[in-house]
Each structure stands twice: as structure tokens, then as C-alpha cells.
Amino acid sequence: MSQFALEVKSLTKKIGRKTIVDDVSFEVERGEIFGLLGPNGAGKTTIIRMIVSLINRTDGNVLVNGHDLDDSFTEAMNELGAIVENPEFYKYLSGYKNLRHYARMALSDITEDRLNEVTKLVGLEEAIHDKVRTYSLGMRQRLGVAQAILHKPSILILDEPTNGLDPQGIREFRDYLRLLASQGTSVLVSSHLLSEMQLMCDRFAIIEQGKLIHISNMHENESSEAKVLRTIEVEVSNSELAVKLLGEQMPEVKMASTEGARISLSIEKEQIPVVNKLFVENGIDVYEILNVKATLEDRFLEITNKDKKEQMV
């Protein structure tokens, strides 16, 4: 057993003179949910296609559970399960036959029990013998997961897995990935939605224009959250007076915007009660203090914008 479920080393893809993926390296640890975040066209799908060897690598290595794709292709492929973009099935066959089909292709023997177990896990017992043609998108997505985990891979690779799922479906899916991860299966998941990455991943890499520009660790972010400035929104009875008071007494507080009775502030956590006290003591009624979470979206944009600026210089 290797330390990492997946190692990607200086992965590069060139098509013609265009470099679509440029020297991307990262590792996914055991039981970790790792994200690839990037805007449309960043190269996420291309990275994933190279990892699952659907397309040739121009350069770089991929190791799945320590098996190099170049040296031990079948061993490496047996350690991964994937859904690349939308899961596609043989629609004229039943869900069960589709699973049987993929089960036969695994190196190890996949028993009837295992098939039933997986079917149950993804909650498709009722429909498993119906033709896939009759499945809803959510059901297909679940069947997609079933075919990917059938052979107990070390790493599950999912490209935009929540595409087309409703909020309920997305939540189920997320819980489901957590469950798998807790059982030791690593997950590599791509998305262009930061909020989704935030909720789903332990760590995620930001990909832009084919380059890996940053790896974020969700746990670090949360623990350091207290020290960073946060944005709060305060609804008061007299916003003019409030603004004036703040300017006079607490000049270190940055005022982001004022909109009617609501003012937005950039502030440290410890200062929130101080501001509240200030208002109340001066006869301003405070109706609501809203913590507008410093989202990773902002940080994401910050990072990417900073990068662009550097490029332009």
C-alpha cells in the first residue's frame, strides 16, 4: 500500500501548439476528498481524462495506489473508479446488466452479494432491473457511482458529479462521498463551483488556464478564520448617525457600503460586540447583525485576480 491513493506528477497536455494542462502535480491522501476547482475551460476534465488514461499524456506520470500507469497499467486501472462528465450507460440494458458488464471487467471476482450491496448503497434496489432508458438523471448519477465503486477502488474520480442534481440530490451525494471517504476510499472531484468544493472537500487545488495555482486546505482555513477580517451587515434605526459615530470612535473599522438602514463592515470578530455597544449606548436600535461569511469565493477570486495582475506586469 502506497502512502497516496493518487500521485500526479508534472502532468502536461499539449494539443497542437496549445498547452491545455501545464505541469500539474498533486497528491491525494488515503481517505481524503480532494477537489479540482477552476472556471470553465480551465483544464479539469483534461486532467481527469489523462489520469484515467482516456487521452494520452504529453508529459508526466500518474501513480494510482503506487502503481505507475506506464509500467503497470492494469494494476493501476484496477485501483480506480471514475465517472467522466455524465455517466453514460447501455440504455437498452437494465441497470443490473450494466453493473454486471463492468463487474466482469474487474480483475478481481465480483460476487452477486457485492453487486447487491452496491445497489443498496446507492439506493437503486427498486429500479435495478428496469432498463436504464427509464432512469432519471439522479438515478443515472447513482448508477454511475455504483459502477465506479463496484471493485472497491483506492480512488474514486468524479468530474462535475453534481451536474444536473437538485439540492436534495447534491446533499445526499455529498454525504455519500463522506461515507466512502470515511471507509478509506479517496475521492478526486472536480467542479467550477467554489461553494461545492467548500462543502465537499478536505483540500482542493485551484486550476486556471491549465496551471495549478494554489492548493487550499479547508481545515486550515476554518481554524484561521478567527484572525481574518469578516464582513458583517448591521441593520440599525439611524444609519447616518451610526456611520458618523463609527467614523469618529472606531476609525480602524472599514466601512464597506451603506444601503438604506443596512451598513456593511469589515471587522474582526472581537470588535463585533464593541460596535453593538457603541450603537446601543448612543440610542441607535440594532435590529440585526448578520455575519456575511468570508467565503472562499472571495479568496478564490482574490487569488486568481492577483495572479492575473502578476501576469500583466
Binding site: 488514461s53 482516456l54 494494476e75 467522466v84 455524465n86 450507460f89 471487467m105
Partner: peptide, 14 residues
């Protein structure tokens, strides 16, 4: 045309 090829080729077979 059905896109199943990508599911087919990510298996441990040449």
C-alpha cells in the same frame, strides 16, 4: 455516440 466508450476504456484492460 452514446458516450459509453469512456466508461468502457477506464477498466483494467488494454
Amino acid at each position: 455516440s452514446d458516450g459509453t466508450i469512456k466508461q468502457l476504456l477506464i477498466r483494467p484492460h488494454r
